[in-house]
Write a protein that binds this DNA or RNA. Structure first.
Lengths: 229, 229
DNA sequence: GCAAAAGTGTTCCAGATACACCCATGT
DNA sequence: ACATGGGTGTATCTGGAACACTTTTGC
């Protein structure tokens, strides 16, 4: 039934697969939604880009594996990370059976290390609408991650995960507009977002140009994503 | 539960795992949401119930594996089946590293075979609020499946997947009430559901008691689940 | 004629949308 | 003084929620 009895599992390679995690790491830079890719240096798909990821270690939890990849490739920890979908087509990797548990992560641009590469290897940030050809089925994974992100925008507070500790309402609106790809009405946006009561004024302001300073806000409950409406 | 793990079959050399699928098979019988469980005849968790599922075959797609389990244990094909989440805690199976890709399925009660068991083995339908203790982390899987189902109820037409070809609005309302666990207003329900335009009258009626016959409806696009609003 | 479920409209309220001007600052 | 983004209120529309009686049938 669910599992073959241990006694019958004579050949150890039988019914096993390599399990990996891949992470779609999103950030927002310059009002554009971008994601992190890693250049492949070996076959298959040498010279292509793919998502950061790798094998799940024998005693490692799936989520922990994704966190590790995030640390190794993006150099960040403690950011929003959610399981997305599991990809397991038998032919998706020419080397053999590989089942990939995909995650997506949201990184505030303020948390990006300056050389985006943490460990060795070629890594780079790419605008979502301007991706190179991706290895394996990673294009499909990216598409699914983006759809999930857009869907969650309007029934949760997930967008706040792109924000630094303190931020202005205009910055927050910019994040929404970057993900949705369309402009929003300023007054309605502010009315709605303040009406939800998730934000509190810090009391400080942000002066960053020759114009009126903007009030800074912070989350009432940082680190939590709430379902709204 | 106190099983020793003498045959713990982690393969330290290779990062491989046994990959299985498990399926939370929902149906609605007698205005109650029920799901299919299989009795375990061997250790670990002998005598407990668990979800139908089993190893993914070497050349088998994950979804195809779930469909196969659905056929073997529930005796149904072609019903709604969606990937739910992947469970991979290193210690979730005392025999070794097992990564389970969980699915959930919705079966119209009209499609249930009379002896619910297709192949050999003890299987049974259980009301969601009255489940026995489940093996492994299957209780957690069921909880997540139920939450997903409830969430999808009000932004998709997923409930229709429980309906036979032709059905009355009262039957459809009963399905919603069973899943949500609360009564709905008849007029508002009918107004909303007819307003969406997914249903068409068949022209026939259903006489099933000493009262006015009910109009039968069918889906404009059966087999598809649409996102609403 | 009575029991039992089918069928049907209106009012009300809340949340979304559309829309334009003054404010505080740096140069 | 002027350029720049910050900040604010109202009228309207739309979709959801509350709510009770008539209709058709079987017995």
């Amino acid at each position: 039934m669910t599992l073959t009895a241990p006694s019958r599992r004579s050949s150890p390679a039988e019914d096993t697969a390599v399990v990996t995690t891949s992470v779609v790491v999103f950030t927002i830079r310059g009002r554009r939604l971008e994601l992190l890719l890693v250049g492949r240096r070996s076959e298959p798909f040498r010279g292509y880009w793919n998502l950061p990821g790798g094998n799940v270690l024998p005693e490692e939890d799936l989520q922990v594996c994704a966190e590790r990849k995030l640390r190794e490739k993006a150099g960040v920890e403690g950011v929003y990370l959610e399981q997305l979908y599991t990809f397991g087509r038998p032919d998706r990797d020419p080397r053999g059976r590989v089942v990939t548990v995909a995650y997506y992560a949201l990184v505030p641009p303020s948390r990006l290390r300056q050389p985006a590469a943490a460990d060795a290897g070629m890594v780079g940030w790419f605008a979502l609408d301007g991706l190179p050809a991706l290895a394996f089925d990673h294009g499909e994974i990216v598409g699914q991650a983006h759809r999930r992100l857009v869907a969650k925008l309007d029934y949760s507070t997930i967008a706040y995960q792109f924000m630094p500790e303190a931020f202005t309402l205009s910055q927050l609106q910019g994040v929404y507009e970057s993900i949705l790809g369309e402009p929003l009405d300023k007054r309605n946006f502010r009315k709605r977002v303040l009406g939800l009561g998730h934000l509190v004024e810090t009391g400080t302001v942000c002066r960053d140009g020759s114009h009126r300073p903007a009030k800074l806000y912070r989350l009432r409950n940082p680190r939590t994503v709430e379902i709204i409406k």
